[in-house]
Simulated scan of single mutants.
Amino acid sequence: MQAAKKSPTTKTCRELQADVGRLVEDGDGSVDDNVGRCMAARKGFSFAEVNSVRASPNRVTCCHFSSDGKLLATGGYDEKAVLWHADTLKPKSTIEQHSCVITDVRFSPSLPLLATSSFDKTVRVWDVDNPGCSRCTFIGHTASVMSVDVHPNRDDLICSCDLDGEIRYWSINNGSCARVFKGGDTQVRFQPRLGRFLAAVAENVVSILDVETQACRHSLQGHTKPINYVCWDPSGEFLASLSADSVRVWRFRSGSEGECVYTLTCNNNNLFSCAFHPTYTSLMIIGCYKFLELWNTTENKTMDLPAHEGFISSLAVSTVTGSVASASHDKWVKLWE
């Protein structure tokens, strides 16, 4: 990662786009297979802000796209979750029943449902088309709930974790807690597609838990600082973990599960969020303080783009539209393509 950052005014938009294009190229000017196909289709790689909205009067902490890419959900310090039309960033509806900071928002992959978690120690599930009242309110956590996720192919199952390290499985159909165990205090994320694993963050370790048995299949270690963020790539074959000063990418293909394949370090201690690019599999997007960092993992090349006026607290991607959303403590949400 670059030690010094240039002022955003030192380069024009055209020059920045040229830099982004070079980032996905190999040293000899060729591109890897995935990037090559996409560049041929789109006649050149680009990554630029396409829309933005002041989403809240206070810090925005989380964002997520619906599976069809048509809606974007955000939440934060104003205790509200907002559903936005993703193409225009016009508000669709506002959810206002939490009584403290909203820490996470996650759409169901197959049903019109949204799950939210909050410092008020509750997890709620909402009908996207009728969000006036929560469909389920799950009570049982004794500490602030930090994260929530919905299983990719079991519509009934959601998962949450709290600051005491307690993980709970909830049944939407029964409206009750299905299982309680320990292992995560920062974030939980189901493996996409198969949903075989649950990645749970506690301190500087990511535990890869078997969804059926809760047995720890892998303990991903190497970060020296607390992990802020984890994300899977859309295939479920790679997981990225991020602390303030480093990003690690782990492979979960058969025969190499839990292997760290790429590492990026940063002396600035300002890394906050991360996401795999929805189209270019070798490109990661990292949310920092005011900047988005683009990291070509295979070439280990990076560049940064001015993006916000505060920490970029959350990133979301849509594989349907190719859009990337960034949410920030500066109260703004932006779309990138």
Rank of each mutant, 00 (worst) to 15 (best):
S144H: 10
T142C: 10
H141D: 07
G222T: 06
A178W: 00
I167V: 15
N268L: 14
S241F: 00
A215C: 10
N296H: 12
S66N: 07
G222Q: 03
A200M: 04
V53P: 10
N58Y: 11
D162P: 08
A40S: 11
L242A: 04
L89I: 06
P131D: 07
D127Y: 04
R135T: 12
P192L: 06
W295A: 01
S235P: 01
G287C: 06
I312H: 05
K90A: 12
F272N: 15
A202G: 06
S108Y: 02
F107R: 04
L72P: 06
Y262V: 01
I158L: 15
T61H: 15
A81K: 07
L111K: 15
P8H: 09
D233S: 02
T10D: 14
T88V: 04
R168W: 01
D245I: 03
C63P: 10
R196W: 05
C216D: 06
H218W: 09
K290W: 06
K70W: 02
P112K: 07
V249L: 04
G222A: 04
V317S: 09
V150Y: 11
D28G: 13
C274M: 04
T12V: 08
N174Q: 15
E203P: 00
G69C: 02
E309K: 15
T10I: 10
L111N: 13
H98A: 03
T265L: 03
A143D: 14
D28R: 11
G36K: 09
T186P: 00
K92P: 07
C177L: 06
Y169D: 14
T281I: 06
N296L: 05
A40G: 08
C274S: 13
G322A: 07
K121M: 12
H64D: 15
Y262L: 03
W250M: 03
T263G: 02
N270H: 09
H141F: 01
K5Y: 14
T213M: 05
S67I: 02
C136F: 04
S117C: 13
S56P: 12
W170I: 05
L114P: 08
D78L: 11
E166L: 09
T142F: 03
D28I: 10
W126Y: 13
A143S: 13
W295N: 03
S66T: 08
I102G: 09
D304R: 12
D210T: 08
A178V: 07
S243Q: 01
V31L: 13
V101Q: 12
K80E: 10
G184N: 03
S171E: 01
T263R: 12
G255T: 03
K225F: 04
N300G: 03
S207T: 11
R193P: 03
C161I: 04
E259L: 08
S144P: 04
L271H: 02
H98N: 09
V333G: 07
A316V: 08
V60G: 05
G27H: 14
S282Y: 00
N34Q: 08
T122E: 10
V247S: 03
E79H: 15
L194V: 15
L89G: 06
G44E: 05
R253W: 02
H218Y: 11
T302S: 14
Q221I: 04
V20H: 00
V230I: 14
E25I: 00
H85L: 10
I286N: 05
C136S: 12
V128R: 07
G255V: 00
T142D: 15
F119S: 11
R37K: 10
T321K: 03
L283S: 08
D129A: 11
R106H: 14
F45T: 05
N153M: 11
L71R: 11
V261L: 08
H308P: 08
S256F: 10
